[in-house]
């Protein structure tokens, strides 16, 4: 039973991380209908930025809490800036081009960023400092649920609630929903669509940065390549839940996280990534619109 609960929690925290990344995919897809391939790289850049800032602050002797907050803030700021810049360079000039062009541009951006970090930093695995301490009150159940699993779950839940409020109740959220429903119409009623798209990229990138920092501190090492696999898996989660749908992305991420956790726990850990991809293929065969997605009909 303990083993089951352990797997359950590790699956949930895994799912929470996927959700943070998958939201960026699903929001961008909802608004401009593009799979932002470079999103995984934003997550990786978030992890690297927080690593660099956290190490500097540790050397300067800041207290633990300040390090977490400042490193997280830096990760969010820089990742959001990268997301904004990428959109301006690689996607905005292609707004009216065929879908395939934008997709290829996104793949190019992803390759570029990966190798940019590889050249600017290093190709080795870097040991990431453990930012989240082991809490004393978690002691009795520490062998089942780790502190960082708990922190990941709590942070993700808080972020999700904030995001829901932002999208449901604020002006900008309303404008985002309007843009994703019908871009031309949104323009006609006076919404600055370019700004909304930028905001979407900024929000998505910030979420990915938070995810990047949490997961790097949880796993304890980072590398320029982490964004690639995480990106594909988060995308799988977004498709699983129904791409374009925000609750769907969260649900899909949790399902994917649990599947992976149980499959590696009970079957074999060698094929961890294979499970995720197989799940993706299976969903696309049987329910291509995802769990909560709308069936989209093609019209002339």
């Amino acid at each position: 039973m303990d083993y089951f609960i352990e797997l359950l929690f590790s699956g949930l925290s895994r799912g929470a991380i996927y959700a943070l990344i998958a939201l960026g995919y699903t929001m961008v897809y909802g608004i401009i209908g593009l799979i932002n391939f470079a999103h995984g790289e934003i997550y990786m850049i978030g992890a690297f930025t927080s690593f660099i800032i956290a190490t500097i602050l540790t050397i300067l002797g800041f207290p633990a809490l300040a390090i977490i907050v400042l490193a997280g803030l830096a990760a969010v700021i820089w990742s959001a800036s990268y997301g904004y810049t990428i959109e301006k360079i690689a996607y905005k000039p292609l707004r009216h081009a065929p879908r395939l062009s934008a997709l290829i541009s996104a793949i190019g951006m992803s390759m570029f960023l990966q190798n940019y970090v590889l050249l600017a930093q290093t190709s080795d695995f870097l040991p990431f400092p453990q930012l989240i301490p082991d809490f004393a009150f978690m002691e009795p159940i520490a062998h089942i649920v780790g502190s960082s699993d708990m922190v990941i779950l709590v942070v993700t839940t808080v972020v999700m609630i904030c995001l829901t409020i932002l999208i449901k109740y604020t002006r900008i959220g309303k404008a985002m929903r309007a843009t994703s429903q019908d871009r031309t119409m949104a323009m006609l009623v006076g919404i600055n669509v370019n700004r909304i798209i930028s905001v979407t990229f900024i929000i998505g990138s910030s979420l990915a940065a938070i995810g990047g920092m949490l997961v790097a501190s949880h796993i304890g090492q980072i590398n320029f390549y982490i964004g690639f696999i995480a990106g594909i898996k988060a995308f799988t989660a977004a498709v699983l839940g129904g791409i374009g749908s925000i609750p769907g992305a969260v649900l899909g991420s949790v399902v994917l996280g649990l599947t992976e956790s149980f499959a590696t726990g009970y079957i074999s850990s060698d094929y961890e990534d294979v499970f995720a991809f197989s799940l993706l293929v299976l969903i696309l065969i049987f329910k291509p619109s995802g769990i909560l997605g709308k069936v989209d009909t093609q019209k002339v």
Binding site: A90, I104, S105, S110, F112
Partner: peptide
């Protein structure tokens, strides 16, 4: 090389 390949994909598309 790979950096250039990525840049090529983006620039060609744009």
């Amino acid at each position: 090389r790979m950096l250039a390949f990525g840049a090529i994909l983006v620039c060609m598309m744009v």
